[in-house]
């Protein structure tokens, strides 16, 4: 029985021996393997060169890219089997698709843990920035403040 398609995501590291303009071809290999396993490719994120946190096969750098796709869970095992023979892809990871709600992006990279690990700073400003008041509004506000001051302090003539 054909089970229902599920959404997955494959992220992979491409060997740095591949030329920069040739990386798209390697991304195409991943796409091809997915399609051969009767998967439907969704979003393709082009591999970008980045420094690895630790050397892998004596490489300090690699291209990191990921692709989302839909495939039936019974077919998923084919993908790593085929990718094993692709020497240019040095490592890959298939996981359930990580769907980030759009509102979440605003808070990225705003975390500043203090020494105790508690962030006391407000992540976002309390109020949205308002447009600067016009000269007329400002004059009105000053007039209002003057009036209130007079009320509180009493008019200078009285004292």
């Amino acid at each position: 029985m054909e089970s229902e398609a599920k959404r997955y995501e494959i992220s992979y590291l491409v060997s740095p021996n591949v030329a920069e303009d040739d990386v798209v071809r390697v991304a195409g290999i991943v796409t091809r393997v997915i399609e051969e396993a009767k998967g439907v490719v969704g979003h393709i994120n082009e591999p970008k060169k980045r420094r690895l946190a630790y050397p892998m096969y004596k490489h300090r750098f690699a291209y990191f890219g990921y692709t989302t796709f839909q495939i039936s869970p019974s077919q998923i095992a084919e993908i790593p089997q085929k990718l094993r023979f692709e020497k240019e892809i040095i490592r890959h990871l298939i996981v359930d698709e990580v769907v980030i709600p759009p509102r979440q992006f605003a808070f990225r990279a705003s975390w500043q843990p203090t020494e105790a690990g508690i962030s006391t700073k407000r992540e976002t400003p309390r109020r949205e920035e308002r447009p600067a008041p016009s000269a007329e509004e400002r004059a009105k506000a000053i007039e209002h403040i003057d009036k209130r001051l007079d009320e509180i302090l009493g008019t200078p003539g009285e004292q």
């Binding site: 992220s11 990921y66 996981v95 990580v98 769907v99 980030i100 709600p101 509102r103 979440q104 808070f107 705003s110 975390w111 992540e123």
Partner: peptide
């Protein structure tokens, strides 16, 4: 921060 999904990437 209302982060519901933590992205491994």
């Amino acid at each position: 921060a209302n982060i519901k999904v933590i992205d491994y990437k």
